[in-house]
């Protein structure tokens, strides 16, 4: 597969065109704005917590295909997971887009996240892919209301 096809996989194109959980959440426990000031991507991630578990998660905002698809896939994966499980997933995702997960089998084990393996060939796009994850991480782990990638 060419590097471009590897980057813009069907899963990514699909989530970009029809993002899941793309809505404002009025009764969110936490909401955080994430910005990439260099390219202008900005998303708000909303989380409703039930103790240590994510009862609901959604997002809104605008950006490139990679950042929007990543936010969409993320929200569809973390619902009903515990904060600890989400943190582990974030760690795996981060290693994946930085090209630190080697071997097809290891990558495939990540399920839907595997669609983002192609990002590692495009260092300039790593921040696009991880913006929503960093924003969710902030919502779960700190009191900050906004984060910036720069």
């Amino acid at each position: 597969m060419s590097a471009l096809k590897e980057l813009y996989q069907q899963v990514i194109l699909d989530h970009n065109k029809a993002p899941r959980n793309f809505r404002k959440m009025e009764d969110a426990t936490r909401s955080v704005d994430g910005y990439n000031p260099l390219c202008g991507d900005h998303y708000t991630v909303y989380v409703k917590l039930d103790g240590e578990r994510i009862a609901d998660v959604s997002f809104q905002g605008a950006g490139c295909a990679i950042s929007k698809a990543s936010a969409s896939v993320m929200t569809s994966l973390v619902k009903s997971k515990t904060v600890e499980e989400v943190e582990e997933l974030f760690g795996q995702f981060h290693r994946l887009v930085k090209g630190e997960i080697e071997g097809e089998e290891e990558v495939e084990r990540l399920g839907k996240l595997a669609a983002f393996a192609g990002v590692s060939e495009f260092p300039a796009r790593v921040k696009c892919a991880s913006l929503a994850w960093h924003t969710l991480h902030t919502a779960l782990k700190s009191e900050e209301k906004t984060i910036s990638t720069e």
Partner: peptide, 12 residues
Amino acid sequence: IHPHDIGTILDV
């Protein structure tokens, strides 16, 4: 189409 996606594809 977001400009960043245009840029990446043109780059390739």
